[in-house]
């Protein structure tokens, strides 16, 4: 029995360092607690939640879409929608996936509204030649054009930013959600609308590409 328990524990443990092994379940629970507090009228909880929503919006807009100049609009949209959503939320545990889906949809809509944008930039779902799954390479707008260029370069690091930018966009979104935001595979599948198996495949390939780009960092 003891041996069986050890085997189960080993299976469930990540083979990353403890700092990298912060579980999605913990984050979901913390977020849900904050949502309940905010819904119950806790102003401090509401402020923290609204800050988190805007930070997610900024990171998504900058890192996945590469549109730093859109970030303020996406942040404002996340702020207002989160405020309204908290007042009628029924399943606080689903707040995180709701937020990421909402931000993702806002980013997509903003790109579709860009009448002067080349059509090949419209989708962040497209893959790239390195993906080996038939997608077409898609470039993104240089984030250096955004208002917080210097600060964002300092925050992210030039090499990592370049490596993320070089990823096929659909891979970039998976890396962003799974590695940088700490969502579980299931959460990523819900946000992106693809299967968990596909999330794992894309993440595996994306990690391989990033490793080659970042091995000397």
């Amino acid at each position: 029995m003891a041996a069986s328990n050890r085997a189960v524990t080993k299976t469930r443990n990540s083979h990353l360092s403890p700092e990298e092994n912060d579980t999605s379940d913990t984050r979901v629970a913390e977020c849900a607690r904050l949502v309940r507090q905010a819904a119950a009228g806790d102003r401090d909880a509401m402020e923290r939640l609204l800050m988190q929503a805007q930070e997610v919006a900024f990171r998504f807009s900058f890192l996945v879409c590469g549109h730093a100049q859109d970030a303020e609009d996406v942040m404002q949209d996340a702020l207002l929608k989160t405020y309204r959503h908290i007042g009628r939320i029924r399943e606080p545990e689903h707040f995180r996936t709701w937020l990421y889906k909402t931000v993702r949809n806002t980013c997509l809509m903003k790109r579709r509204r860009r009448v002067d944008e080349p059509s090949h930039l419209l989708s962040i779902e497209q893959g790239g030649p390195a993906s080996g799954d038939g997608f077409t390479a898609v470039d993104v707008e240089d984030p250096a054009q955004g208002p917080d260029e210097a600060a964002m370069n300092t925050w992210l690091g030039e090499r990592l930013r370049a490596a993320l930018k070089a990823l096929p966009p659909s891979y970039r979104m998976i890396v962003f959600l799974r590695e940088m935001e700490g969502l579980s595979t299931r959460e990523v599948a819900k946000v992106t609308g693809i299967s968990e198996a596909n999330v794992k495949t894309r993440l595996h390939r994306a990690r391989g590409i990033l490793r080659e780009q970042l091995e000397d960092v």
């Binding site: 990298e20 590695e179 490793r211 970042l214 960092v217």
Partner: peptide, 15 residues
């Protein structure tokens, strides 16, 4: 290398 790469991404994401 993969462990290092994942670590870099997670470090940036939590900053």
């Amino acid at each position: 290398g993969l462990r290092h790469t994942v670590g870099l991404c997670r470090e940036a994401g939590s900053a």
